[in-house]
């Protein structure tokens, strides 16, 4: 007769393994174990970038497309040596683009760079001060890209109508901001996010604005499929520790969402311990 502990372990091992894969995030037909997507900007160096990605458990990692430095350090290290496409789903972005044309051009270069890779993050900015998205240009770029065979995950404002239109165009995920890019201000309008999540038939991911782990948990509790972040990890005092915190927050928030929270009851206080059998009565 095996010990109770051994029996429990034997029961738990396969069950945990099943649980780990029971609730994948599916984007463009591909299942991902991790619901945390992270950016690769603003880290001290590539070693720290990689350590943070590993601690976060992220499988989808964003990269930017920029001109090569002509004539400078031909041997300089490359991001893709540390974050190779063989290990991660690279998600090229259009950060810094202010027109549909520039965004489309950037992603065509990205597709060539990454050997025909179709999954991309579209963002078209409207203002250098706030980095707020230009929704009109975003819609225009999304139409061109979807027609051209790209699988478009799209950064947008937390506007349910814009989200609906982007989904109708054929974007594979809609990614509203929680607050301004790089601001760390958290989720400023949870009810708009909830409206978007409730209506969408594609995954909705919060992209931008998360400042700390509780923000990520709230996004997941609202029913978001995932969260994309960069600055909240990269500019933490200890980025690698924060990456691990974000991983746990995303998992906890997702489980809380699936579990279904108790209703809020402002006045109907209900003790958790029995009301009868109190001593001295």
């Amino acid at each position: 007769m095996p010990s109770a502990a051994a029996e429990l372990n034997a029961m738990n091992a396969p069950k945990d393994a099943v649980l780990e894969h029971a609730d994948p995030m599916v984007i463009a037909g591909r299942a991902y174990r991790s619901r945390l997507l992270i950016g690769t900007g603003k880290y001290r160096d590539f070693a720290q970038t990689r350590a943070a990605i590993d601690a976060s458990g992220a499988q989808i990692v964003t990269v930017a497309i920029r001109r090569t430095n002509i004539g400078q350090n031909p041997g300089e290290p490359s991001l893709l040596d540390h974050v190779p496409a063989s290990e991660f789903t690279l998600l090229p972005n259009t950060a810094g683009c202010y027109s549909a044309e520039d965004a489309v051009r950037t992603l065509k270069l990205a597709r060539e760079l990454l050997d025909g890779h179709a999954l991309v993050k579209l963002e078209v900015l409207g203002d250098p001060h706030t980095l707020f998205p230009n929704v009109r240009e975003t819609l225009r770029a999304a139409e061109i890209l979807v027609k051209d065979g790209f699988q478009v995950m799209v950064y947008t404002s937390d506007d349910p109508i814009a989200a609906r239109e982007l989904e109708a165009i054929g974007c594979v995920a809609v990614m509203p901001l929680a607050s301004l890019i790089g601001s760390g201000m958290g989720i400023l309008n949870p009810w708009n996010l909830k409206l978007i999540v409730d209506e969408a038939n594609v995954p909705v991911l919060v992209d931008a604005g998360v400042g700390t782990a509780s923000d990520a948990a709230v996004a997941m509790e609202l029913g978001c499929a995932g969260v994309l972040m960069n600055t909240a990890i990269a500019l933490a005092q200890d980025p690698v520790l924060m990456a691990g915190a974000m991983k746990k927050a995303i998992e906890a928030g997702r489980e809380a969402f699936r579990a279904g929270r108790m209703p809020r009851k402002l006045y109907a206080a209900s003790p958790s311990s029995p009301s009868s059998g109190l001593i001295g009565r």
């Binding site: 065509k108 890019i181 600055t231």
Partner: peptide, 27 residues
């Protein structure tokens, strides 16, 4: 775009504007 497979047989001409890009860190 000039696909990698065509680099060798794509001639340059005076006035060409060429962009050469790579992946860098970004969010």
């Amino acid at each position: 775009i000039v696909p990698r497979s065509r680099h060798g047989d794509t001639p340059l001409a005076s006035g060409d504007r060429i962009e050469v890009v790579r992946a860098v860190g970004g969010g």
